[in-house]
């Protein structure tokens, strides 16, 4: 039976070993190539967030002044015509009176002797009186008409006044409404500003806590790190540490080596040994530590 020559045994063994070596290499490098980020992502750690540019406040709408209705009171039409008529009549009357007086004197002189003339004059006087009465009546009538007219004008004016008042009321109401809206928007703006100030204050508090805990973490890592004996200088390595909310470390990844592989590994071990990390109880501050970028220097 020569199933295998002794020489072939060794060759086959070596070949099998070579195949397995190839497989292990494939596994290791294939996996590490998968893991490798071709370029480590760098991120700067900011202690406090820069002020976000505040949006320009929305200009509150300027209340456009409602057009003031220019009300000019119309001159009250005077009842001139009636007055003029009255005066005219008065003048006429006076004139007639004087005329009549003069006539009477003349006639007295003349008709002292003429009784007939006297009679005539009396007749005329009566006539005149009746005429005067008629005239007075007419005058009264006219006066009444003037009064009526004045009343009508007055009423019209009152109506106009009421209308004006109503309009003014309306306008005032409108103005009040606008004023109220303006007040409200102002109040809202003020509350926004207040909230923003509170948020800013809170952010600064959080960043203070974050800084404090970062210092604590650095101190803990430093305590757990055993530096290589022959370490020269003050190398700085940067790690990305994934931290659970409980403080446990799930992953430590070197993002920027210091150039000294021994130091990097020592620090990585130190970080791994530091689990659980001290985390702030404040939730929003703790959220900052979910993916922690840790810069570690050999000496402070």
């Amino acid at each position: 039976m020569n199933y295998a020559l002794p020489r072939e045994d060794v060759t086959a063994g070596l070949l099998a070993a070579a195949v397995h070596g190839f497989f292990v290499l494939l596994l290791v490098f294939g996996l590490s190539w998968q893991i490798h980020d071709p370029q480590p992502i760098m991120a700067e750690l900011w202690q406090s967030m820069p002020e976000p540019s505040r949006p320009a406040p929305i200009p509150s709408p300027q209340p456009t002044p409602a057009p003031q209705p220019q009300f000019r009171p119309q001159p009250v039409p005077e009842n001139k015509a009636a007055d003029i008529a009255l005066e005219k009549k008065k003048q006429q009357e006076e004139r007639k009176k004087t005329e009549a007086l003069a006539l009477e004197e003349r006639r007295k002189e003349k008709l002292l002797k003429q009784k007939l003339a006297k009679e005539e004059e009396r007749k005329r006087k009566e006539e005149l009186q009746s005429k005067e009465e008629a005239r007075r009546l007419e005058l009264e009538l006219q006066h009444e008409a003037a009064q009526l007219e004045a009343e009508r004008v007055k009423r019209e004016q009152e109506k106009k006044h009421a209308e004006l008042k109503r309009r003014e009321d309306l306008q005032r109401e409108e103005e009040e409404l606008q004023q109220r809206m303006l007040d409200e928007s102002l109040a809202r703006e003020a509350s926004q500003i207040k909230a923003k100030a509170a948020a800013d204050q809170r952010a600064s508090e959080v960043s203070k806590i974050v800084a404090q805990y970062k210092d604590m973490i650095s101190a803990k890592v430093r305590g757990n790190t055993r530096l290589p004996d022959n370490l020269a200088g003050n190398p700085e390595a940067e790690f990305e540490v994934s931290v659970l909310p409980t403080g446990e470390i799930t992953k430590v990844k070197l993002t920027k080596g210091s150039g000294n592989a021994g130091y990097d590994q020592a620090v990585q071990r130190g970080i791994e040994k530091s689990t659980p990390l001290p985390l702030p109880t404040d939730k929003s501050a703790a959220a900052e530590f979910r993916n922690l970028l840790l810069k570690h220097k050999a000496r402070e």
Binding site: A4, L5, E8, T11, A12, G13, L15, A16, A17, H20
Partner: peptide, 17 residues
């Protein structure tokens, strides 16, 4: 790992034989 190395060893031996 043992099975794999054995089988590869036999694969080569058998190939030669």
């Amino acid at each position: 790992l043992a099975a794999s190395s054995m089988s590869w060893w036999h694969i080569f031996l058998k190939l030669f034989a």
